[in-house]
Write a protein that binds this DNA or RNA. Structure first.
Lengths: 145, 145
DNA sequence: TTAACTGCAAATCCTTTGCACGCTG
DNA sequence: CAGCGTGCAAAGGATTTGCAGTTAA
């Protein structure tokens, strides 16, 4: 999602585009990892030294409200953020490095809906996170050397 | 899981059973909901007025380490706890009431493992939470009255 | 102009910790 | 009786908020 599109989403909602917000939007648009508020704050500070962490949080909350940004709350870590342009996906978290990998499974999505239906519920949103470690490469006998 | 079993798990690990811990274990054993630390604290206080919230937290951490208790960290709410005796399951959270319903799907479990394998990972643990609302009962035309 | 926005510092919430004393094994 | 365990109060980290000044529209 481009910074322009994010701005548009805000403007349409009657939200003012300030220098600080503009910087945050640009940073958010070009991030292809999943930065937390503090990380976004340092990156945005480089573009616009007057941003404060409060403004980063406030802006993220608005963007989340407008549905253009998703807040990812992983186990015992500050929330991370991503723009909501990519189709729905879930996350695998590398326990060693903290890396986040996106994936998607239509089969799982469908099963979830079925389960919820059986329990008498409509799903509003869900969270599927796989926490794991890189597989040892040469496990199947073909050991190196 | 009975209080006795929980005690056993601790004793085996060389952990002392104090009056406070004993009370916490009994509460934990008989809880069939998913209480948070504070709730456990109030319930345990009734049995043993000398327990403190610190001790509740400390005891829960030990039990989690020993693998006999699971810490459930749902969206923007204090952690909830459950004894680890039931086989693995996931949770559906009622957004209106906060109720937690357990469910299990072998199909989903299997799909998760497959996905992780494809990504080159071994799953250490995962988290699947469905957040939803009770289905309106008479949606399919058969409206009441 | 003026209502929305800002940075700052202080406040919140949940959880953990340091300390001096108490109690289990 | 040696440590582990305790309560208390204070510290901690992430996030939110009150306030008085600033700025976009």
């Amino acid at each position: 999602m481009s910074a322009r599109e994010l701005e548009h989403a805000l403007r349409d909602a009657g939200v003012r585009i300030t220098r600080q917000r503009s910087a945050i939007l640009r940073i958010l648009a070009e991030a292809d990892d999943h930065p937390d508020a503090n990380e976004l704050y340092s990156r945005a500070s480089a573009l616009e030294p007057t941003v404060s962490l409060s403004t980063v949080y406030r802006t993220l909350s608005i963007l989340e409200d407008k549905g253009v940004v998703h807040r990812l709350t992983f186990e015992g870590a500050p929330a991370r953020f991503e723009t909501a342009d990519t189709p729905h996906h879930d996350h695998m978290i590398d326990l060693e490095t903290g890396d986040v990998i996106e994936f998607r499974s239509d089969k799982i999505e469908k099963l979830q809906a079925e389960i919820a239906a059986e329990l008498g519920y409509d799903i509003v949103y869900h969270k599927l996170e796989l926490y794991g470690r890189r597989k040892a490469r040469n496990q199947a006998g073909r050991l190196g050397a």
